[in-house]
Write a protein that binds this DNA or RNA. Structure first.
Lengths: 225, 225
DNA sequence: GTCTATAAGCAGATAGAC
DNA sequence: GTCTATCTGCTTATAGAC
């Protein structure tokens, strides 16, 4: 009934005999990598243990069972997917500027973590109960960035811009879903796009690079009055 | 070494003692339902058997093993996702009309098959070898609709419209990815959107209904010269 | 073609030594 | 904390009767 996790760390080694970090951290990193690549159901505790350079039994020591480990990973990935973008959207920059920054940031970030969107999508499809954990992750961000309810702030800004005649009116939900769709979907569906459009890895990178300049123009064009 | 599948059907019952269709078809339908809901790795042959009202052993009789059954389902779902939209995009209607029809069709179709996009996305992420089967599915459609390489046709149309000054220039790949992203992503990420935007099922339906009129305007607006 | 019964192989989880 | 060894249960897959 011992609960070592997230209590005080043991006296532990720094840069000790095993590769970087203490075991718990290594396990979480390895689990992250494996779960995101294979999906929760397809992931094997054995593979995680190997990638963390520890024994299977240690995973259970720290995280009790597979499901808890999966939850920890899901929260981490989901939070990473919203944190920085949420901060931008909740800031008080002008709308046009926000759009450009969100596109640039998302396209860069997702290039580095290509499996994340597909993973989160399929986890949520297969385990609806994870929406709760998703909300936890979002709230956590809100607390850290100090922008409570960035959606409401954004909605107000959109309506103000529309009334001022800077953009044509659009429902805030549609605005944000459009923006996120255009940024995230190409990565979530990357293997699909590469197949249909006959792109290799290099070609996909070029496609995304082009998109970095193309997409803000496209989006702002759609908002012109 | 018998290969009953897709050879001639047995003398079989029509509207026989078991519910609709012959066993092979019932199995495929059940597998479709279960795989799409749980993902390939999370699906159980037992559950499929029950949903098809047959015994587990019969799944192996018809499809040999789980993997083959999964492939059959994947091909079917992928084909269903492209068939009708591909036909529209490959037709010779004016561009503006195509956009309106694709949006309307996709939003309707996906409302009825909400799990399909997420399923295809995660399958392709977890099994890159399925891209081949994806291509099979696409080719199959191409042959049926008689529009060989609808992408090339669409690209030509876009360039022509741009030269005529009807729309502003846009790379054909960006055009199609934008259109598909805006239609498909909200369904692929449906649980995510419902959580973030605090929508229940009814609310999501309203959101999509609004999108049916909003999205074509948004997209055409972005293309205005 | 369809079933029952069973084999064979893992994967998750625990016990206990160090 | 970390390991080795083992148990238990589930899942795919096959054998064989009808």
């Amino acid at each position: 009934m011992v609960k070592p996790s997230s209590k005080r760390r043991p006296a532990a080694k720094r840069a000790g005999p095993d590769r970087d970090g203490d075991a718990e951290q290594r396990i979480l990193d390895a689990a992250h990598s494996v779960f995101v690549r294979r999906g929760t159901a397809g992931a094997r505790m054995q593979e995680i243990a190997e990638e963390a350079h520890v024994n299977k039994a240690l995973l259970h020591y720290y995280f009790r069972n597979k499901n808890r480990l999966a939850e920890a990973v899901f929260r981490r990935v989901a939070a990473g997917l919203f944190a920085r973008v949420g901060a931008i959207l909740g800031s008080d920059e002008p709308l046009e500027h926000k759009i450009e920054r969100v596109v640039a940031l998302y396209l860069d970030q997702l290039s580095a973590t290509p499996y994340a969107p597909g993973y989160v999508i399929s986890e949520l499809n297969q385990h609806p109960e994870r929406s709760g954990q998703l909300l936890d992750a979002v709230r956590q961000i809100r607390d850290q960035t100090g922008s409570p309810n960035f959606l409401a702030a954004l909605a107000a800004q959109i309506q103000a811009s529309a009334r001022a005649g800077d953009i044509r009116p659009i429902a805030p939900e549609q605005f944000i879903v459009n923006l996120v769709s255009l940024c995230v979907f190409p990565f979530a569906a990357r293997p699909l796009l590469c197949t249909i459009l006959q792109l290799d890895d290099k070609g996909f990178q070029r496609f995304i690079a082009q998109r970095k300049t193309t997409l803000p123009r496209f989006f702002l064009g759609a908002l012109r009055p």
